[in-house]
Design a protein around this nucleic acid. Structure first.
Lengths: 338, 338
DNA sequence: CTGAAAGCGCTTACAG
DNA sequence: CTGAAAGCGCTTACAG
C-alpha cells in the first residue's frame, strides 16, 4: 500500500541500508548514489514510517497533554502555546480532556503510555495524591502547567498566584478603593484559590484595611455563573463595596452581568477587576481591567521544559512567569477619597 | 527499560505467542495458563507497545485534527466534541493549528502521514485547491467539519448556513423589525460567508423588504474587532436600523460594545442577533440571542463519520445538522410596528 | 562507501 | 492448545 523503504531501494537499485543512510546521514553516502536515492524518494513520495522509527529510537516525538477541558478559554489558549512550542521542536501533541475525573485521567494515561508518548503535561488544579499515583505509574516524564506540587518534586511552570492577587489588590487600593470585596476560588484549591485569597488579604492588611471575610469574600469555581451568583451574594452582604476583585475573567464577567442587571453602573458605582486576561476580558462591557497571566507562554514554556527534561538538560524545578496588570475600563479611581 | 512481552513470557514461563494470545483472543488459551499469564501481566504492569502493534495492524487509532486555531472558542468547542467521540471509540487526537497557512498545513500533514494517523479531520473555511492537493497527497481518509466542498467529493458535516441565516432574519422580521443591517462574513468565503449573506437576503426578499446592500451590509472575519468596526460603519451608513444580524457571536459582541460606547440602548433602541451560540453569547450584556450551531456535535459527528469511512461503512457524503434559534435578551419585539 | 544481518516489540499463520 | 518462525518497516553495528 503505502510505499516503504523497500520500494525506494528497488527503484534506486541499492540496498535498504543505503536508503536509510541518505535519510539519516546523507554525507556518508556516495554523491551519485545519494542523488539517485533522493530522486527515487521524491518520485515515490516516500515518507518513512514513524512507527518503525519509534520502535527503534524509543522516541515518538509526541507528547501527551492532559487538561480538564479544551473548551474552556483558559486551557484552549494554553494548548495553543503548547502546540506552537511542540511544532517548533518537531513534536506533536495528543490531547485529552480529563474533566477532573480519575477514570478519564486513568484511561488517557493508559493509552498514552501504550502509544509511548515521550512525556506528559498535566494542567489542572492541585495534583491530588491519586492523580500523582496515576501519573507516576506511567513512568513518563512529567511537567505541570499552571499548577505545581509542593508535596512532590515535579517540574512546573506558572505565575506567582499569591503575588499576582496581592498586586491586583494593591492596584485597587491605589485607585482609592477601601471597601473591596473578593470573588475567590475555593480555599480548598491550594494552587490558585488559597494563595490568591492570601495575597488579597495580605494587601489589605498591608494597607491597614479591615475586612470581614465572612461578608466580603464569596467563592466560586472560576466560571461565569459562579461569578454571577457570588456577586449577587456580595451585593447583599456588603452593599457598601466600591470594588470587586474576581479571581477569573469569567467570574468577573459574571459580576458585570449581575451588576448590570440590578442597575449598578460600572465602573462609576462599582469597579470590577478580573484575573487571567483571557480574550473575553477585552470583549466585556466595559472592557475588563484584569491581572493578566501569560497563558500561551505558560503552555509554550511547559513543553519547552518537558523537552529539556527529556534531553536530560538541567532545568529549574518551579518556573515562575511574570503576571501583569492590564488596565482597561472596569476600574475607576476614587478621586474623592484621595 | 519498559517491560516487554518477553519479560512477561519469562515470568509466566510460556512463549511470547501465548502472551499475545491471552491479550488478543484469551478464550483460545488454556485456563490455568491464561491465569498465570494474566497474573504476570498484572505484576509487571505490562502495557503492549502500540507502535509495534500499529506496525502490524496498520492502524494507530489516532486521528489528525487540523483547525485554524484552538484558542478560538468555536474551534475549541468542536475539538471537545471530537475528543469525546474519539475517546468513546478508543481513539486519540493529534491536534494541529494551521493558522490558515499553507506551510503550516503542509508541515502538519507531512508529520501526520509519517505517524500514520488513520485519518484526518479538516476544519476551516473553504477547502482551497491547494489545501485539497495537500490533503489528498497524504492519501489519508478525510472528513470536513463545519465546512464542505462542492468541487470535490469529500464527506462533510455542518449546518445549513443559508437556511440558518434565513431563519435568523425571519425571526428578526417576525419581531417586527424592518430596517435590518447585517454584519456578514466575506462573500469570498463560499462556505459560510456567502451562503449566510444569501440566506439573509432571501428572507428580506420573501418579506418584501427593500435593502441597499451597500449601506446595510458590512463585512468582517468573524472576530470581535471586526464586529466592532462593522457596527461603527453601519451606524453611520444606516442610522435608522433597528436590528443587526451578526454572523458570529464574536462580531455580535463587537457590535454590542460599539453600540454601548456610543450610548445606544440594547435592545431598546437596537436589537442584535448573533450566530454560533458559543459560550460567550450567554456572558454578553445583554445575553445575546443567537442562531445556534451544535458545535460540539459537529466535532463529535465528524469523528464518528471518519470512523465509519475507516470501517468501510456507507455514510452520506454531506451531513447536515440542525441549527436552532437561542432566544436571550438582545432582540426586542417592535410592538409599535405590528 | 555499502550490503547482509540482527533487532526494535509485537502478531499470526504453520506445524505439531 | 502452544511454540518456532516469519514479518511489519525501519536502523545500525559488522564485515568487507
Amino acid at each position: 500500500m503505502k510505499t516503504t523503504i523497500k520500494d525506494v531501494a528497488k527503484l534506486a537499485n541499492v540496498s535498504i541500508s543505503t536508503i536509510s543512510r541518505v535519510m539519516n546521514s546523507p554525507e556518508i553516502v556516495a554523491p551519485e548514489k545519494r542523488q539517485r536515492v533522493l530522486e527515487a524518494i521524491e518520485q515515490l513520495r516516500y515518507h518513512p514510517n514513524a512507527l518503525a522509527r519509534g520502535l527503534i529510537f524509543k522516541k515518538t516525538k509526541t507528547i501527551g497533554v492532559l487538561v480538564p477541558d479544551v473548551s474552556n478559554a483558559y486551557y484552549a489558549e494554553a494548548i495553543r502555546g503548547m502546540e506552537d512550542a511542540a511544532r517548533e521542536m518537531g513534536h506533536n501533541i495528543i490531547l485529552s480532556n480529563t474533566d477532573k475525573n480519575k477514570k478519564r485521567l486513568g484511561d488517557s494515561l493508559q493509552v498514552m503510555a501504550e502509544k509511548r508518548v515521550d512525556g506528559l503535561i498535566f494542567m489542572s488544579e492541585p495534583v491530588s495524591s491519586e492523580d500523582y499515583e496515576l501519573l507516576r505509574a506511567t513512568g513518563l516524564p512529567l511537567v505541570l502547567a499552571a499548577t505545581h506540587s509542593l508535596e512532590y518534586d515535579i517540574p512546573s511552570i506558572k505565575v506567582n498566584d499569591e503575588q499576582a492577587a496581592y498586586d491586583g489588590a494593591v492596584y485597587l487600593i491605589g485607585q482609592g478603593h477601601r471597601r473591596i470585596a473578593m470573588i475567590s476560588g475555593r480555599p480548598a484549591d491550594t494552587v490558585a484559590g488559597l494563595p490568591r485569597l492570601q495575597g488579597f488579604l495580605r494587601a489589605l492588611r498591608d494597607a491597614g484595611l479591615e475586612l470581614d471575610v465572612e461578608r466580603c469574600v464569596a467563592y466560586g469555581d472560576y466560571r461565569f455563573e459562579h461569578g454571577y451568583e457570588a456577586m449577587k451574594r456580595l451585593h447583599r452582604s456588603y452593599p457598601e463595596l466600591t470594588a470587586v476583585f474576581a479571581m477569573s475573567d469569567e467570574m468577573g464577567l459574571g459580576a458585570l452581568s449581575y451588576l448590570h442587571e440590578v442597575g449598578v453602573k460600572i465602573p462609576a458605582e462599582v469597579s470590577v477587576l478580573g484575573f487571567d486576561n483571557t480574550r473575553m476580558a477585552s470583549m466585556a462591557i466595559p472592557p475588563l481591567t484584569t491581572v493578566g497571566q501569560p497563558i500561551a507562554r505558560i503552555g509554550y514554556g511547559a513543553v519547552q521544559k518537558l523537552l529539556k527534561v527529556l534531553d536530560g538538560e538541567a532545568c529549574e524545578l518551579r518556573t515562575e512567569l511574570a503576571h501583569e496588570l492590564v488596565v482597561r475600563d472596569s476600574v475607576i479611581a476614587l478621586i474623592s477619597q484621595q
